[in-house]
Nucleic acid binder design. Structure first.
Length: 471
DNA sequence: ATGTGC
């Protein structure tokens, strides 16, 4: 049984378990579902954990690990890596594009822009790309990562500076990838997918931090675009393959016992651990290219309809990923396996991995909200570096299950409601729209306010959707 | 999230 009173408030918006290495950033501990707390406590018992298993205010139930969670293990002392701590959609992430246009300059072209975006960017379950590659071309492209996109003309040279890890994971390989993964991924580059993934036309609605907004080249009433998607069937198959592999060797070969089979894991420095890391990084490359090709399509549409050449990347972040990093924790140096699942990196100002343009403000944090309300831009802080291994939340989090949403929400009413707010929809499936209705989600503003008040990231801008392309 | 399953 989960006892909520076992979590004590150690400062505003932060609760720590009295016996376990688990903390939750939340306004009120009663606002967390017991199932996801149980999952967090399971994670806190993983071999080699360093510090606490950390939950963000958008925590909700997931596969093994809760979504909205950070867990770090000690690579040098057989700390584990677990695919469930990354998620099936490896390198699911968000990219924000800015234009030099104001809302009033595009208002009359809005529907046309959405038509073209919907035509150019394949969306929906099992949607396929117009880019056809042979198996060997596909392999070459994913190994090269975003550098392939640059060579092929899908990226501008400057783009790479504004993507986390420059859009390229060097430690990647096809050696441990199944034919199935290749088959599933081969024709999916530059596709949106389904579920909560989207391409939105948005307007900068409110600026909270003028200085940081200026550095990010964001201004009120500006037209921006947000891309939320990941590694499609490719990453999904890689996750599936490695969960199966780890289930086979975890107990027999490595004598690891976990609280839940879905926490299947192996030591990160083991044979299987290293194979997973190389494969996960490959899926990460896929997702970076995926968001890059969608960017290319957006640029094409804006050039064609508005003759706008300025569509620049503000930033591109991953919220489902693990990285192996040297990190100081409690004045001790570690090589950490940092699992982040539904959590966003939020590095402080002057961190060496930030682009020069953003050095003084910290790492941009992109938080997708729901299609009817808003999304957010924040920046990382020193407090995050000290308390959360440099992380913050990733989104709103569900309150209604997909089925509940489909049963209780009326499609026509929803579309009318969105229209009345000035939001137009292009979607491959009606069911997805119902599943992703604003009513199915928590208010992202509450989530963002908690991380802001806990100082693990700072609000910079609020973005409001005016057009949504979905699967 | 996902060729929406073991």
């Amino acid at each position: 049984m989960i006892k909520l009173e076992d979590f004590v408030k150690i400062k505003d918006y932060k609760f720590k378990h009295i016996n376990n290495n688990a903390v939750i950033y939340i306004d009120d501990i009663n606002n967390v579902e017991p199932e996801s707390i149980k999952q967090l406590l399971n994670v806190s018992k993983l071999p080699g954990l360093v510090g606490d298993a950390i939950a963000m205010p958008d925590i909700h139930w997931g596969y093994g690990f809760p979504i909205g969670c950070v867990a770090c293990t000690n690579y040098d002392e057989d700390g584990v890596i677990s695919p469930g701590g990354i998620g099936f959609d490896i390198n699911c992430g968000v990219r924000l594009l800015r234009t030099n246009l104001e809302y009033n300059e595009i208002q009359k072209y809005k529907e046309k822009i959405l038509d073209e975006l919907f035509k150019e960017v394949p969306a929906g379950l099992s949607s396929e790309s117009d880019i056809r590659l042979s198996k060997s071309e596909f392999k070459k492209s994913i190994i090269k990562g975003i550098k392939w996109a640059l060579e092929e003309g899908y990226a501008d040279k400057n783009d790479l500076n504004f993507i986390e890890d420059n859009g390229y994971k060097r430690e990647s390989s096809f050696d441990y990838i199944s034919e199935e993964a290749i088959e599933r991924g081969k024709n999916q580059l530059g596709t949106l997918g389904s579920g909560n993934h989207f391409l939105e036309l948005q307007i900068v609605d409110e600026i909270y931090d003028e200085e940081a907004a200026k550095r990010l080249n964001l201004f009120k009433d500006q037209v921006v675009l947000m891309i939320h998607c990941g590694s499609r069937g490719f990453g999904h198959q890689i996750a599936t393959d490695f969960i199966n592999l780890m289930l086979k060797v975890m107990e027999n070969k490595y004598k690891i016992k976990v609280e839940d089979k879905q926490l299947a894991c192996v030591p990160a420095n083991s044979e299987e651990g290293k194979k997973y890391i190389y494969s996960m990084n490959l899926a990460a490359n896929f997702a970076f290219i995926n968001r890059q090709i969608i960017t290319y399509k957006v640029r094409k549409v804006f050039k064609k309809l508005l003759n706008t050449k300025e569509v620049e990347i503000v930033y591109d972040i991953s919220h489902n990923m693990a990285t192996i990093e040297e990190y100081s924790y409690n004045s001790k140096k570690y090589k950490l396996v940092m699992h982040r699942k539904g959590a966003t990196r939020a590095l402080p100002p002057f961190h060496p991995s930030l682009p020069n343009e953003y050095k003084e403000i910290g790492q941009p944090v992109l938080i997708p909200g729901d299609m009817g309300r808003y999304s957010f831009v924040l920046v990382g802080t020193e407090t995050a570096y000290k308390e959360t291994f440099g992380h913050t939340c990733h989104g709103a989090g569900r309150i209604k299950s997909r089925n509940q949403a489909k049963k209780t929400i009326n499609y026509n009413e929803l579309i009318k409601e969105l229209e009345s707010k000035g939001i137009s929809i292009r979607a491959a499936s009606k069911a997805t729209i119902l599943e992703e209705a604003p009513q199915a989600y928590k208010d992202a503003l509450n989530v963002v306010d908690i991380v802001h008040n806990a100082n693990i990231s700072k609000k910079v801008a609020k973005l409001r959707p005016i057009g949504v392309v979905k699967g």
